[in-house]
Amino acid sequence: MKFFFAVISQTWRNIIETWRSQLLSLMTITLSVLIFAFFYLVYMNALHAGDLLNNDLRLIVYLEEQPDYPLQEEYRHKIEKFDKVEKIEFVSRLEAYDRFKEQLHENQDVLQDVPHDFLPASIEIYPKRTLDTLSRIKLFSEYLQSLPGVLKVQYGREWVERFYSFVQLLRIIVFLSGALLVLTTTFMMGHSIRLTMLTRKKELELLRLVGASDNYIRVPFFLEGALLGAVGAGAGLGALYLLFSWIALHFSGQGVSQMFPFNFFSGSSVGIIILLAMLLCAGGSFTSTHKIINL
């Protein structure tokens, strides 16, 4: 307990004495966290939007002939053999006509002289919603196209592919900004603590001479790193929240934002990001103190 109080007061004193030199590290950590958190937020929301779109995502397989019950079972068997699906629905020519007529509303009279079986029969397939639904749907459509009696497979291919590419790009950016976060926090923190220790070399030597333990010397720097990580991450996330609130205030109720609600991180995600930054900074300072103490 005495050790705990001693290192806490030592950490506090260190911070008070060196806060000016630590300011640059703090700003770097804040900026790194802001960049990472921004892209991660966009990525998370894109995945969420993808989920919402998945709810309506279906493949429509137009058939040459209207299948009878044994053929329907055969189609069902072949589809489920390729991938698990949420639901398979067979739409007869007449059902297709009725749906079309319903969609026309007051213009239904254009169908007056059109035969009721002019639309092809079809199978509507609702794929199971998984994270890689979008990436698998192209393969699924190619498989369905290869089945006998299939005229055409429709699933909004262009849109799905674009969205998939966008999510892939975001994934790469999140990975890169994450790497940037790791590098800047550990190296910047390590470097900054190293400089602090070198400028206080006399003090550290004296601590050794009066019998200070390794932990008594090292732990305050370790805590200082963790604290800077927490404050830096908190400031970065705070800045992102301000940006998010500003966007929400100025763009709420408009087209896309209504279709795809854009949400901020949950409390647990915020906690995890702060914890991660604390661990990285503490790790950086630990490596530095370890090197210098063992010199």
């Binding site: 006399k202 003090e203 030597e205 001479l209 009066v210 019998g211 333990s213």
Partner: peptide, 19 residues
């Protein structure tokens, strides 16, 4: 053990070693 011993030895250095 050396750290514990040093806590029990007072040393007044010739060059003071003050901060």
């Amino acid at each position: 053990e050396m750290q514990a011993l040093r806590q029990n030895i007072g040393v007044a250095y010739q060059d003071f070693k003050l901060l």
